[in-house]
Design a protein around this nucleic acid. Structure first.
Lengths: 141, 141
DNA sequence: CATAAACTCTATAAAAAAGATAGACTTATT
DNA sequence: AATAAGTCTATCTTTTTTATAGAGTTTATG
């Protein structure tokens, strides 16, 4: 399960993407719109900024904005940034690998093999789907 | 990421499956073989027993054993039992659903749509792969 | 039937992670 | 100068995870 942090990040990014034309967006606006604690959201947006995903402007008329078009922001990147590994086991993680301490040889471990497949199946989606793909779908009347 | 509890459960089940012919297996044997704290493992095996996956025999010559053939024990079942939801978001979980508190309408939420796909991709593997599929692969000389 | 072996059960504790809050500071606009 | 807004660091609370303790129960067996 993704942490609240990552969940909030997605919702904030969605709001920013859907309001790109309006210039910098206030933290407080996002917090209110998405029902998130403003102080908690502050930390999250800052992390996204430090990772180069968001930009910000201080002072009056300031706020946060996307640094790249939504279609260039992969969902996997956000998850890894805020939650760490996407894989179900450390011994199968591409970015946060750790040796398995319970099995004798990962190369012949069947669990390792299956969990690698789960990782690949998830990544196939999360690496290719972007912020653009999770914007609110327009309902055609 | 799966909890240690679930990871240990998998390793314990693997050991039990690979030694099915030897009658009940001691907790202490599994703990030593798989490098797991014996007391922690005790709790895990008990949970697996209460869920009907393992059986046990008390007293001398006792221990734990599988209640079903390995090919009938799906990996998804073990994860759900010990870790809960497999989905990345509560609003997308089949067994542990919770309403999304940050979006206005799940039906048109793009995040919900993508995460449903991730869930399905993971479940396709985890519901179909069983304990039999994660046993140590025999290396043919 | 006594003994020892082994699982059972409940409680608790320690550690880590998650979630949230506080407040002083800096920058920018008007 | 005043105000609006992000920045930064620290701290705190709660929850979850991981682990341990110990008394209780069951069973085999000599």
């Amino acid at each position: 399960m993704l942490s609240k942090k990552t969940q909030y990040a997605f919702h904030a990014l969605i709001h920013l993407a859907e309001n790109q034309d309006k210039g910098p967006i206030l933290i407080s606006e996002i917090a209110q719109e998405k029902n998130i604690s403003i102080k908690f959201l502050e930390n999250i947006l800052l992390e996204l900024k430090n990772a180069g995903i968001l930009g910000s402007k201080k002072g009056k008329g300031g706020g946060y904005y996307l640094m790249k078009p939504p279609k260039e922001i992969a969902l996997a990147k956000i998850i890894r940034l805020l939650d760490g590994a996407i894989a179900l086991l450390p011994c199968v993680s591409l970015n946060y690998y750790e040796r398995c301490e319970n099995c004798k040889d990962e190369a012949i471990c069947g669990l390792n093999e299956v969990m690698s497949k789960v990782r690949d199946a998830s990544l196939k989606i999360l690496e290719n789907k972007t912020l653009k793909d999770i914007l609110t779908r327009q309902v055609t009347i």
